Computed example of a mutant assay.
Amino acid sequence: MFQIIGILVVFIMVFGGFMLAGGHFDIIIKALPFEFMMIGGAAIGAFLIGNSGKTVMKTLGDFGKLISGPKWKASDYRDLLSLLFLLTKTMKTKGVIALESHIEKPQESAIFSRYPKIMKDHFAVDFICDTLRMMTMNLEDPHQVEDAMEKQLEKHHHEASGPAHALQNMADALPALGIVAAVLGIIKTMGAIDQPPVILGAKIGSALVGTFLGVFLAYGLVGPFASRLKGVYDEEAIFYHIIQNVLVAHLHGNAAQISVEIGRGNVPSAFQPSFLELEEALSAAPAE
């Protein structure tokens, strides 16, 4: 919602201020299609050249996140803590053998199936299962496990953040592409140097629209889009760090209740369930 309001504010304040200052839109409107074709087309072409097909498709697919924000909500953090509680409690009370059926085939697990949204996130499920599998293979040094998990998180975050970096690169290039369009406009103007000042002025104005458009798109739209996407990816990454916090706490020998409480303390304040809310969720989801 705020993103839509922000876009409207940018357009209203920039073009409204131009109009109130006595500016006329005739030259801008006439030059805009051609300038946008040159600048926008070059930016899209450079975007395609500089990024893999996977990054291009992910960027297109993630545009909805600009408005919707991170996919994980307060209820998802509560579900994650409940899931981790059930898994760590099963491991402590029933042993490794009882846990194996859940981590080897999570899609058939009675514990995992209680949380369908988490099940749809392949990285979250694999991250949990792979870490617990390491524990069942007697890798019980908390520091080694934490280091291994941290490397996985870094790799995943780097890959997930590709669209934000790609958009930021586009934003950085747009002012220079605007200059390219402006230079072409000046070249066109110099070809008509024998024309009267009123015609030359219009041609120079058209050329400067390119500079304006490049800077406007870079700092008014594409740059903020990249910043917003980066913020969304950073917030989503916290979800996976909660998994790390709980499982490492479990490896340190804490009871399941203590481990998830440590994880709850690291949930962002806007999504953090209260102690009582988590207690109710855990009571409503008993183990097998």
Rank of each mutant, 00 (worst) to 15 (best):
P116D: 06
I199F: 10
L81K: 01
E159P: 03
I12G: 03
A21P: 07
K71V: 05
P142L: 02
F34N: 15
T55V: 14
P70E: 05
K151N: 13
E154K: 09
L66I: 01
I242S: 04
G253Q: 11
T88S: 09
I28S: 04
E277K: 11
L217G: 00
M190L: 15
L184R: 02
V232F: 01
L132V: 09
H241K: 12
V209R: 04
M57R: 07
L132A: 03
F2A: 12
V215A: 13
A181V: 04
G69E: 02
A255K: 14
S161C: 05
R133I: 07
E261I: 02
E277H: 06
F275P: 02
D79S: 11
I12Y: 08
F36Y: 14
L99R: 03
P268G: 05
Y233H: 07
L87M: 04
Y219I: 05
K58M: 08
V232Y: 00
R114G: 12
K188T: 15
K120G: 10
E140S: 14
F47Q: 00
S52R: 11
A21L: 11
H250Y: 13
G263F: 00
M137E: 15
I7C: 07
I193H: 10
I103E: 01
I242F: 05
K58I: 00
W72C: 00
L139E: 01
E100Y: 09
Q257V: 13
M135C: 13
V246A: 05
A124H: 03
I187E: 12
A256F: 01
G41V: 05
I27N: 07
E104T: 14
S161G: 09
S227D: 15
F2R: 11
G265R: 13
D141A: 13
L174F: 06
K71S: 06
S101P: 05
H158C: 09
I243C: 03
Q152G: 06
A171V: 10
A202F: 06
L251H: 07
S227F: 10
L217S: 07
A270S: 09
M170I: 08
S269L: 12
H143V: 13
P196M: 10
E280N: 11
S68C: 09
I27M: 05
G16V: 04
G69Y: 00
I193T: 12
I199S: 15
P224M: 09
P273W: 03
G17C: 09
D62V: 00
S227H: 14
F15S: 02
E235M: 10
G210Q: 04
K155Y: 12
S283R: 14
A226R: 01
L20N: 10
H157E: 14
K92T: 10
P197I: 08
G95L: 06
V56M: 08
T59R: 00
L217R: 00
L251V: 11
F271M: 14
V215P: 11
S109Y: 04
H165F: 15
V215H: 04
L208W: 06
L177R: 01
F123M: 03
H157G: 07
N169S: 15
M1W: 03
T211R: 02
T131G: 06
F271G: 04
